[in-house]
Design a protein around this nucleic acid. Structure first.
Lengths: 339, 339
DNA sequence: TTGTATGCGTTATCAA
DNA sequence: TTGATAACGCATACAA
C-alpha cells in the first residue's frame, strides 16, 4: 500500500492541505514548512494518486493517442516524437491501439469518459466520420494525423495534419508514365473502400493515368496489408499476368519492399525490368538495395506540428488544418520502360 | 460534462447503489429494475469514471507495459500480440515508453503509485536492477521480456521470458568461423557496458572466437544504435580497416540491414565478399535482397507466454523463468570466406 | 501562513 | 430487493 497524503502530513506534522499546497506550489507556505513536507514526501516515496487527483480536479492533464495500425513502421517516428514532445511539456501520454474492427472515435469517446482527457491525438484512421461523431467528443481538443474527415464535416470540429495524398500520388505515377511505363500496378490497403487513405491514393493514381492517356485497369490494383509479405504476393501475381506490369506504385514502403523482393527473387532487376515507387519514407526503403524511390512524408514535422496545435487548442486556440509538402525522393528504383 | 451514476439513477428512478449493482452484476436486482437502469445507461451514454472506480476499488484492472525502445521494429510484433491478448481478457493496457535516460523500474514505480496497477510487463531493458528495486514494486506481478535481472537477484522477485542470448550468439558466430572467417565484426548497442543485452551477445561472440582459436580484437566491435544508419557507418569503417572484416554478426536486424547496404553500395557482394548474420527476425531481414541470415527470436510466442504468465501471477501463481529456443535462420547471406 | 471541512464519482456496508 | 451512507485520496474554499 503506497503512502497517501495523510501519511505525509502526519510525518511532517502538518495538515493534508499544507502538503497539497507545497506539492502544487499554490498559496503561501513558509520555507520551514516546505522543507519538512518535502522531507516527508521523500522519505515516504510519496507519489500522488492520479485517480484521486483527476477525480477532484476539474482539469486533467491526460492526453490520449489513438493509433490505427500501431505496428506500422512508418508510425514509429511519430510515436517517438509525440512521446517526447508530450512528456517535455509535463503531460502523461496514454497510447491506445485501435483495431481494424474498431472505430477510432468510439474508442476515443470511451477513453474520454473513463479518464477525463484534456486532448486527443489520432494517428492513422478512416475518413468516414460524420459531424455528430466529432460533436460527441464535446469540447476536448483533437488533432488528426495522416487522415482527416470528409469535406462535409465542419472544419471547426477538429484539427488535422496531413500531406496531399491524392496530389502527390498523381505526381509519383506521372513520373512513371513519363518514363514510358504503360502497365503500372497500384498496391494499397482497401483501395476500393471509399474514405480510406488507400482509396485517396488510388484516385491520384487514376488522375495520372488519365493525364497520360492510359486506361484504368482494375486488375492492376492490388488490395494489400501494410506488410512486405502482402506486397510480395501481389507482385508475384502482377508479374505473371498475361500482360505483365513494368512499374509499381505502392501506397506504403512496407508493401514496396515486399514487391521489390518479388522482383529480385525472380532474377529480374530494379529498375531495369521493373520500376518501383513506395510511400512514407521509412528507413528501410533507403537502406534497401537498390534504395527505393518513395513519397517522403515529413513524419517528424507532422508529429511535432500536431502536438503544437494540440497545445494551442488546449490554451484556447482555434482549429487548424495543415497540409505539409510531401516529396518524391528519387533514389534509383525507377527507370525508363523497356521497349 | 459526461453523465455520472447519479444522472443515471435519477433517470431510472432508483438509487446510485442500485445502478452500481446492475452494472457490476453484484447482488440481486429485479428484472424490471435492471431493465430501467440499462435503459437509462444507454440513453445517457453513461460510461463509468475510471478514476472514481479505481480510487474506490481495492483491486484495479490496469496493466502497464513499459517499453525501452518503442520504435524498435522488433518490438512491433510484441506490441501487437500483447495489446490483443490483454484486451481479449478485458483489461485495459497502458503503454509507457522508457527513455534511454530513464530507469524502467523507476518509471514502473511511478505509474504504479499513480494508477493502482494489477500487473506490469517490461519489454526491453537493462540487466542492472537490484533486488531492492524489485521489492519496491511491492507484490504487483511483473514479467520481463527479452531481458532479466542479474543472477544475484532472487528469482522469486520477478518472472521473465527470454532467449539464451549468449548461447545463440555463440552458435551464430561459430557458424561464421566454421565457414573460415577469421576477421568477424560484432555490432551492438553498448557492447562494453555490462548488464546490457549488447554485452551479453558480445560474450557469446567472444566464446565462439575462443572456441575457434581466434583472437578477440576490440577494434572489430562497434557500438551502434538499433538503426540502419548506425550499422551502415560502422560497416563502412569495418571495410576500410587495414585488415578488413569478411563477416559481421549484428545484434539486431536493423543494424544488419544498414551493414548490408554499406557492403552492397560499395559494389561488393553478399555473401561472396562479406557474410552477414543479424538478430531478431524482423520481416525486413527476410525481404531484404539477399535475405539476411538471422537469429530468429520467437516474438509472438514470447509475448503470448509473457501475458499468460502475468495472468497466472494475478491469479496467485508462482513466478516463472522461461527461456525459449532461438533459431539461426539460414537464408543465404553467409558463405565461405575467400582464401 | 496554516488547518478544517467538503465533495469529486464510485463501490460496499449496513439497514430497511 | 433496495436505499442511505461512509469511505477511497486529493484539492480547495473558507475559517482561523
Amino acid at each position: 500500500m503506497p503512502a497517501s497524503i495523510k501519511d505525509v502530513a502526519q510525518k511532517a506534522g502538518v495538515s493534508t492541505a499544507t502538503v497539497s499546497r507545497v506539492l502544487n506550489q499554490a498559496g503561501k507556505v513558509s520555507a520551514e514548512t516546505r522543507r519538512k513536507v518535502l522531507g516527508a514526501v521523500a522519505s515516504c516515496h510519496y507519489v500522488p494518486n492520479a485517480n484521486a487527483q483527476q477525480l477532484k480536479r476539474s482539469t486533467s492533464r491526460n492526453i490520449c493517442l489513438c493509433v490505427r495500425g500501431i505496428t506500422n513502421p512508418f508510425f514509429a517516428a511519430f510515436l517517438r516524437v509525440i512521446e517526447r514532445q508530450i512528456s517535455l511539456r509535463g503531460y502523461p501520454l496514454l497510447i491506445e491501439a485501435v483495431d481494424d474492427s474498431q472505430d477510432e472515435l468510439a474508442v476515443a469517446q470511451r477513453v474520454l469518459n473513463e479518464r477525463r482527457l484534456c486532448g486527443l491525438l489520432f494517428l492513422g484512421g478512416t475518413y468516414l466520420h460524420q459531424a455528430e461523431d466529432f460533436m460527441r467528443l464535446g469540447e476536448v481538443p483533437r488533432v488528426l494525423m495522416t487522415f482527416n474527415a470528409p469535406a462535409s464535416v465542419d472544419r471547426e470540429l477538429y484539427s488535422s495534419v496531413i500531406v496531399a495524398d491524392r496530389d502527390i500520388s498523381r505526381q509519383a505515377v506521372r513520373h512513371l508514365a513519363d518514363l514510358g511505363h504503360r502497365r503500372i500496378a497500384f498496391m494499397a490497403k482497401s483501395p476500393f473502400e471509399e474514405n480510406t487513405t488507400g482509396h485517396l491514393r488510388m484516385s491520384g493514381y487514376q488522375d495520372a493515368l488519365k493525364d497520360a492517356g492510359l486506361p484504368f485497369d482494375p486488375s492492376l490494383v492490388f488490395d494489400c496489408e501494410y506488410r512486405p509479405d502482402s506486397g510480395f504476393s501481389s507482385m508475384k501475381a502482377a508479374l505473371t499476368l498475361a500482360d505483365p506490369v513494368s512499374a509499381v506504385f505502392a501506397a506504403a514502403d512496407t508493401i514496396a519492399i515486399g514487391a521489390a523482393k518479388a522482383v529480385l527473387s525472380q532474377g529480374l532487376s530494379i529498375p531495369r525490368d521493373v520500376s518501383i515507387i513506395g510511400f512514407d519514407g521509412i528507413d528501410m526503403a533507403e537502406y534497401y538495395h537498390p534504395s527505393l524511390d518513395t513519397v517522403l512524408q515529413p513524419a517528424e514535422t507532422m508529429a511535432k506540428r500536431a502536438v503544437e496545435i494540440l497545445f494551442e487548442l488546449i490554451n484556447g486556440g482555434a482549429n487548424q488544418h495543415i497540409v505539409l509538402p510531401a516529396e518524391l525522393a528519387r533514389r534509383g528504383s525507377t527507370g525508363p520502360a523497356l521497349l
